[in-house]
Design a protein around this nucleic acid. Structure first.
Length: 374
DNA sequence: AAGGCGTGGGC
DNA sequence: TGCCCAAGCCT
């Protein structure tokens, strides 16, 4: 089918956005000029990948306060970058942003979309978002919001993402006519606040021309994406203390919780396994206590976490991949939510464990240099 | 190219 | 409680 002209169809979005936009710290006041701080846009875009605005706001403010320029970020250490990202999730973004800042600090900003696309962490969407919002180039940034808005307006059945090239070509005249930065942000803002998965069409400036609304198909367009719900597995998560130091797994280079410090952990033994009965032996735990468990949800895993504190009378050499850590440094280490949650529990009194603790398994594995598990 | 990668909010 | 989703990217 033939679509109407993008500039005509989307024209009401420009005045709507000028009158309804949220004030966000990375947004330029003047939407018709080049952005005064492309670095701010870069930081915000990386933080906003798969993350809601409300979650990002405090992180963004702290980040820009600490590293106000791309050069400042380039000079930061990996550990402090991860610490500043702590709790935000998808930590690879922090490493990619750090790497991207180093490149930009050394080589300057790329002048076009292809150059931006080559910066670590910038995919099709983010590179175009930067080109449009920071540099006023008529590049179409299609994120989940834009895909949803355009799919509904045009009445596209099925997943709109495979039609990205087609949609970008169609969108280009409207970007030039309405302003690249303005239209890019208007599309996303409309998707985030009005044309949400559950839409509020009463407040929509383009409801009069929306194919999905006309067809009463906003519930079907775009279609929801199927997701697998993995089974839950159970783990002990152990704060092991000896001679006033804590045993921690050092950051891994890849995989779940890469770049972050973790407490030792081990799966709960199968019911009836011998491990639970294994003697503590020479480890001589002076104190053993537990806190209530919780369910830790990741994208592709669910863990039932049983937090535990073990104080030993004597230490032992940290196995490969582990390190004994001074209490004063504990708070400086970047951790994921699971591990920071146990760190926060430490000052609180625990109780006697309700489940049999496989101390032999856990400590034996550690003493033999078992690989750190996430 | 399908799956891995975190966390919190809304309903 | 459980399920869906969120300004995606990388391999």
């Amino acid at each position: 089918m033939t679509w109407p002209s993008s500039a005509t169809l989307l024209a009401p979005l420009a005045p709507w956005f000028d009158g309804n936009r949220r004030e966000l710290p990375w947004r330029a006041a003047d939407l018709d000029a080049a952005h005064p701080d492309p670095y701010a846009v870069l930081v915000s875009e990386l933080m906003l990948q798969q993350t809601q605005v409300a979650t990002v706001l405090p992180y963004f403010t702290r980040w820009m306060d600490r590293w106000p320029t791309v050069e400042a970020l380039a000079a930061a250490s990996d550990e402090e970058v991860h610490k500043a990202w702590e709790g935000l999730g998808y930590y690879r973004r922090a490493r990619l942003l750090h790497a991207g800042a180093k490149r930009i600090a050394g080589e300057g900003w790329p002048s076009d979309l292809a150059g931006l696309r080559g910066i670590p962490g910038l995919g099709d969407y983010t590179a175009a978002a930067l080109a449009a919002q920071a540099f006023q180039q008529p590049e179409a940034a299609l994120d989940g919001n834009a895909f949803r808005v355009l799919a509904r307006l045009l009445g596209l059945e099925g997943d709109p993402r495979p039609r990205a090239r087609e949609l970008r070509d169609w969108l280009r005249p409207a970007l030039a006519a309405l302003g690249p930065s303005r239209l890019t942000q208007a599309l996303m803002e409309l998707g985030a606040t009005v044309c949400a998965p559950l839409p509020r069409c009463g407040g929509c400036p383009v409801a009069d021309r929306c194919a999905a609304l006309r067809l009463e198909a906003t519930g079907r367009i775009p279609p929801a994406r199927p997701r697998a719900q993995p089974a839950t597995s159970e783990f002990w998560l152990a704060a092991v203390e000896a001679e006033d130091r804590w045993l921690l797994a050092e950051p891994a280079g890849q995989g779940l919780l890469a770049g972050l410090w973790r407490w030792p952990s081990t799966p709960l033994p199968e019911t009836g396994a011998d491990a639970a009965a294994e003697p503590i032996g020479t480890y001589a735990a002076a104190e053993l206590s537990a806190w209530p468990s919780w369910t830790q949800v990741y994208t592709h895993r669910r863990e039932r976490v049983h937090p535990l504190r073990i104080r030993l009378q004597e230490g032992f050499d940290a196995p490969a991949g582990f390190a004994w850590t001074d209490p004063g440094r504990l708070g400086e280490l970047p951790m994921g939510r699971r591990d920071s949650r146990l760190r926060e529990l430490l000052p609180q009194p625990g109780a006697a464990p309700l489940l049999p603790v496989p101390l032999g398994l856990l400590l034996g594995g550690l003493r033999r240099g078992g690989s750190p598990s996430p």
